[in-house]
Structure formats: C-alpha cells, structure tokens
C-alpha cells in the first residue's frame, strides 16, 4: 500500500512539473544570461535599431551598431581579440530606410541568415527583438507587402531569446513562435522597460 502511495505521489509530482512547464509556456521560460560585447543589427533596416542603441547605451554595455552586419564583421571582431558574445537583430522592415538603402528584403534575409548560422558555429547568443509595435507588423501595408513578416520568420524561430514589445504581439505571433520553438521570450509593456530588462540580461 505504501509503495502504491509513493508511486502515485511520484506520478502526481511528475504531472505537476509537466503541467507547470506546459502552462507557463515558452514566454515565461527562464531567460538565458547574455554577455557583451553586442553586435546590433536589423533584418529589414528597421529604424528601431536607434531605439535599441539608446537602450544599450543607457545600460552601459559595449556594442557596435552595424546596419548591414555580415559574417566578416564577426570574424574581424574575433581576430581583434574581443569577439561578439551576443547579436541583437531587430525584426520588422523599415518604412523608408530599406528602399533608401537600395536593398531588398531578400538581401536582408540572406545576410541575417548567414549571420545567425555563423553565430551558431561560434556559440554567440542571438536575440531577436521586435520593438516597433504593430507598425512593424505589416499593419496598413500595401497589398503584397509582407516584408515585416518575412523578417520575423527569418529571425524569430532561430533566436535564443525573443525581446518583444507587447503591442506588436497583440495577435500572439511571437508567443506562438516562442512556444513552438521553445524559445524564452521577454515581453515589455513599453520600450522604456527595455532598459532594466537589458541590464538584468547582461548582469
């Protein structure tokens, strides 16, 4: 009888643990720790890199902003003796910047995919960030303009951590990706909250 009770208790405990991780979801999984220096770039030339740059500056973390960062930038930094430990890639396409830079979303996806693959090889942490709200979620975009979503598809599922402004996740797009790919996700109410979150992440 005692043995049966012990087995039942153990099973119940296993069930609780499983249910806990299921109900918490990936969005509430423990965020990994990140290390500097940071390579900051975007997939889609989002102007949100400026916002993230200010956040990183306020957090006093060493970084480089390279709008069109390539694998070569990782190699150069590595050979300088201070390799990048974290890459933050802003998702969501620019309304004006990408056209103005004379590049296409296809170019951007190719560039960032190569960057992420190289990061995997070098064990560099990849943070996919979407902090532009619904404006960078194809809201009101012209027919056939799905550049925002393409940039999300290219980066989010391959990230080690997602950093998302709540407003841009109102349809749960990032929550679904985080859950399916088991990626921890930090969701902020307002971009000003990114400063303590980044500080905590790099502590």
């Amino acid at each position: 009888m005692k043995t049966i009770f012990r087995i039942c208790s153990l099973l119940f405990l296993v069930f609780l643990l499983g249910a806990n991780s299921y109900f918490l979801g990936a969005g509430q999984a423990q965020a990994p720790k990140a290390s500097p220096p940071i390579l900051l770039t975007a997939c889609g030339q989002s102007p949100d890199t400026s916002t993230m740059k200010v956040v990183i500056q306020k957090s006093k973390i060493p970084y480089d902003l390279v709008e069109l960062a390539t694998v070569q930038d990782l190699a150069n930094k590595k050979s300088s003796g201070t390799p990048y430990k974290t890459i933050i890639i802003l998702m969501g396409a620019s309304l004006k910047g990408m056209g103005a830079a004379g590049i296409s979303i296809e170019d951007e996806i190719k560039r960032t995919s190569e960057l992420i693959d190289a990061a995997r090889r070098d064990k560099i942490m990849v943070i996919g960030a979407h902090i532009g709200g619904m404006k960078r979620r194809a809201q009101g975009a012209a027919v056939g303009d799905n550049t925002d979503e393409l940039s999300i598809d290219a980066v989010a599922p391959k990230s080690d951590l997602l950093l998302v402004l709540k407003e841009g996740n109102e349809d749960g797009r990032f929550t679904v990706i985080a859950k399916q790919k088991k990626i921890p996700m930090i969701e902020v109410e307002k971009n000003l909250d990114l400063i303590p979150e980044i500080e905590k992440l790099f502590k």
Binding site: P47, S50, T51, S94, G102
Partner: peptide, 8 residues
C-alpha cells in the same frame, strides 16, 4: 514612434 530620415 521614430523613423530614420532616408539618405537618398
């Protein structure tokens, strides 16, 4: 929001 001024 903020937007970057396009260079071109």
């Amino acid at each position: 929001d903020m937007e970057n001024s396009p260079k071109a």
